[in-house]
Design a protein around this nucleic acid. Structure first.
Length: 487
DNA sequence: GCAGTCACG
DNA sequence: ACGTACGTGACTGCG
């Protein structure tokens, strides 16, 4: 955990642990190799006690040897404060969240499993019928050959290995062949069944009926958490059928689920960092930021903004925030390239300070070799000048995004530490069980509900004093579907 | 073990 | 001239 903030985990070069190991000449043998099981996964309980003891001893020894070298690296990069005031205190908070876990409605999932299996079976047959023979629908190769070879449908993008058969390509074939609709539905339902229904049931503790995710603290380069086994940060929400999965996440008897969402957090952080007057003004007055943006982009009064225009404005805002090109914006919105670049231009005219932020962040990355968040979290960048054009652009987008996404991560982590402290200090039964980047989920004892809502809202909104107010929206329900906030 | 696909913020 | 939005994790097929 100690060293993850110095490198770029998962992306470039060795992690700090491996750098230190290399310097100290240490090579650790994986336990599977010690006992000769090869790549076959076995439980630790099956490892002979003598070997397990040696391995555990070596593990502890190596960890201890890493402490000083890594701390000195943290000091060298002025990261001890981040470590001491955020990451280290967060560790026990995450541990408790993992141990509490989330209760699942196993009967609901089992019933959903049966329904989906039947629907999938029907769709499979429809697909085989329209094509005229069986094939493996899950094989991108077979599917591509059938769609674009056999059926002669117009192919779109190519991938390294052949035709692209991703949803947006298939979507463009709607109406051209009867299998298209079946295929898209088949894709959606098999995804739900395998990843969410079967996946969650397989990871549920049969005795307690709960699942216990791992919150990974040292994976994301931006400082975000990630969640695995199962990933509880990507439970479906965008489509109604997917959203049903959330009904499976329930509260214990005499408890309810409470979700608390930071509203437009990244944009508020952007407003704070850039001091952009129009953004700051809109947030301070409590106005709907996407409606304001839409009015300006379309040059119409706020009262005349339609839902579609608002949605488009939201897309443009995030496009600019993440450095998307006019081409990319055109692709996902369906507008023309020139319309897209006109929108981006108007956005910069409306919020002129944003451009300054982009330029100064890029300069920072170039000159000092890293960019940072408000709380000093850093992301390092290699020498950009030597890179190929498109590689450099990719790094530039990462640099622009990091202070915002990372600032978001800093702030919610601080709120989590304070909330957990407060829950314990007040001996409340309520427990924090999930974090989904700008949302916290709590399992709240019914009798504590009003008190806990006040407490959590206050602590989340008061996590820092920014140039703009911080707003949290809450919702309560018996399950995560009922408690899922709007937007 | 990689590639493609798709679920989320 | 180039490829085209940031950050993740899980599942399936295939060499």
């Amino acid at each position: 955990m100690l060293g993850a903030y110095l490198t770029d985990p998962g992306r470039r070069g060795l992690g700090l642990k491996d750098q230190v190991f290399q310097r100290l000449g240490i090579v650790m043998t994986p336990i599977s190799q010690l006992i000769g099981t090869g790549s076959k996964m076995i439980s630790m309980a099956q490892v002979p006690i003598r070997l397990a003891a040696d391995y555990a001893g070596a593990d502890a020894d190596m960890t201890l040897r890493l402490v000083e070298p890594i701390k000195s690296e943290l000091r060298r990069h002025s990261l001890m404060n981040l470590y001491n005031s955020i990451e280290l205190p967060l560790l026990p908070v995450l541990l408790k969240m993992e141990m509490y876990g989330v209760a699942l409605d196993a009967a609901f999932l089992a019933e959903l499993e049966r329904t989906l299996a039947e629907q999938i079976r029907v769709l499979e047959h429809e697909i085989y019928d329209t094509v005229g023979h069986h094939f493996n629908i899950n094989s991108t190769k077979q599917l591509g050959d059938i769609l674009f070879g056999e059926l002669k449908l117009p192919s779109g993008r190519k991938t390294k290995t052949g035709y692209s058969v991703s949803a947006d390509v298939i979507e463009s074939l709607r109406g051209k062949h009867p299998m298209v609709d079946y295929l898209l539905e088949y894709r959606q339902l098999t995804k739900l069944k395998s990843t969410y229904v079967d996946g969650l049931l397989a990871l549920m503790d049969p005795l307690t009926g709960r699942v216990h995710t791992s919150f990974n603290q040292t994976v994301a380069s931006s400082g975000r958490l990630s969640s695995s086994n199962p990933n509880l940060q990507n439970i479906p929400v965008r489509t109604e059928v997917g959203r049903q999965i959330r009904r499976a996440f329930i509260a214990d008897p005499s408890f309810v689920l409470l979700t608390a969402d930071y509203s437009q957090f990244e944009l508020r952080i952007l407003a704070h960092i850039t001091h952009e007057p129009r953004l700051v003004e809109a947030f301070s007055k409590g106005e709907d930021i996407h409606t304001i943006t839409a009015a300006s982009l379309f040059n119409i009064p706020v009262a005349e903004v339609t839902k579609g225009q608002r949605r488009l404005a939201k897309t443009v805002v995030y496009a600019v925030l993440y450095g998307q090109s006019a081409f990319g914006l055109a692709q996902i919105t369906g507008m023309s390239n020139s319309e897209a670049s006109e929108f981006i231009k108007r956005y910069h005219e409306t919020f002129p300070n944003i451009k300054g932020y982009v330029d100064s962040t890029l300069n920072q990355a170039r000159i000092q070799g890293y960019v940072n968040t408000l709380f000093g979290r850093k992301r390092f960048f290699p020498e950009m000048r030597t890179l190929a054009f498109n590689e450099r652009l990719a790094l530039e987008r990462e640099a622009i995004n990091m202070p915002i996404q990372g600032g978001n991560a800093d702030l919610i982590k601080i709120a989590m530490i304070r909330i957990q402290n407060e829950l314990e200090k007040r001996k409340l039964k309520t427990r924090m069980i999930l974090q989904v980047h700008d949302e916290l989920v709590f399992e709240v004892a019914v009798e504590e509900l009003e008190r806990v809502k006040r407490l959590i809202k206050g602590m989340m909104e008061g996590v820092a004093r920014l140039d703009v107010p911080i707003k949290v929206e809450m919702k309560v329900g018996r399950n995560w579907y009922e408690a899922e906030p709007m937007e």
